[in-house]
């Protein structure tokens, strides 16, 4: 469960194809992924984004592209602040973007907000994915598996933060694109690329409980600087990435969300209807019984009709025709 390297998945893929070829569908039951049980560990990782510290240098964008083998260009180009005129969202080209918002407290210091996958504790995408191509890992990350994905885009419908994106212009192997919490780098013992490069320490990497503590201390020490809200602490029952800001989050492009986790109602209905297949099986038996009763009644009626007809006929004849 903790590894997700390509070779590993490829082996799984070959194994599964072989299983299918042999027609042994049943063996794949052990492939059934990551049930809802909370597999999160106590010291799962997270990142605290302090939007009051971020200077909008966009070095994180460059580092992210670089570490994911995307066309990144020259890091100097990223100091061009004209891109902020447009509100941007993550895409296939980049898993993270920084946007700029005005600062009513100090117009000379605009607010910059970095956006990427929030790595929810109970992700809607993981619950929604038809083939379990998105998985939640113990360390807090939510990662997409290119081997399983069928490209149905239900994760995009489900995501509360509108994060996963799709390669609409690829006819073959279109990907679902989203931040993978620098899975490869972290396995090698390195920090996520964006955290590593941030020159002002606007991003703090640590265990989730740690960064929440830091965030709370920051608010306590500087109540004028921050609003009393850690975005992601409770939203959709908690996310691995959490934010601090000096301005209402809903004015900074964050969606207003409840504290209940996103898959709750949907999963409750699903498991209620299925409950170990008892309701469908009971329904099946009910219909079967009904079918039998109606059929018997029909036969009974016919027999009665026949008997009536026979009675109407003369006695000796009815004896002859008796079956």
């Amino acid at each position: 469960m903790e590894t997700n390297s390509n070779s590993h998945s490829r082996r799984h893929f070959i194994k599964n194809v072989a299983a299918l070829g042999a027609g042994v569908v049943a063996t794949s039951a052990n492939q059934a992924v990551a049930a809802p049980a909370n597999i999160l560990s106590e010291d799962r990782k997270g990142v605290l984004v302090d939007t009051t510290v971020c200077i909008g240098c966009r070095n994180c964008e460059w580092a992210c592209k670089k570490s994911h083998d995307k066309e990144s260009g020259n890091i100097e180009e990223y100091s061009d602040r004209s891109v902020f005129k447009q509100f941007r969202r993550p895409s296939a080209a980049t898993y993270t973007v920084v946007n700029e918002f005005s600062n009513p407290k100090n117009p000379a210091l605009p607010i910059n907000v970095k956006v990427q996958c929030m790595h929810c504790d109970r992700p809607a995408c993981v619950s929604a994915c038809i083939v379990g191509a998105l998985s939640k890992y113990e360390d807090g990350s939510t990662i997409w598996d290119p081997v399983k994905c069928i490209g149905c885009r239900y994760c995009m419908v489900a995501c509360s933060f509108q994060i996963p994106t799709f390669d609409y212009n690829k006819a073959i192997e279109p990907n679902i694109n989203k931040c993978d919490f620098c899975n490869e780098r972290r396995k090698a013992g390195k920090l996520p690329a964006c955290v590593d490069i941030c020159p002002v320490e606007a991003l703090v990497f640590g265990t989730r409980s740690e960064i929440i503590k830091i965030a709370r201390e920051k608010i306590q020490r500087n109540p004028e600087r921050y609003i009393n809200h850690i975005y992601g602490e409770n939203e959709v029952s908690g996310t691995s990435w959490v934010y601090l800001a000096g301005r209402n989050f809903y004015e900074l492009g964050f969606p207003k969300l409840g504290f209940k986790h996103a898959p709750g109602v949907s999963e409750a209905i699903q498991h209620g209807i299925f409950a170990y297949f008892v309701p469908p099986v009971m329904f099946y038996s009910l219909l079967g019984t009904m079918m039998w009763i109606y059929k018997r009644r029909e036969e009974f009626n016919k027999e009665a009709e026949l008997a009536e007809e026979l009675e109407l006929q003369s006695e000796p004849e009815s004896e002859v025709e008796e079956l």
């Binding site: 299918l20 794949s28 492939q31 993981v126 949907s266």
Partner: peptide, 12 residues
């Protein structure tokens, strides 16, 4: 794929 990879949580 949905024949071999199962996600019983998913309505889809």
């Amino acid at each position: 794929h949905s024949i071999i990879y199962w996600n019983p949580n998913s309505a889809l």
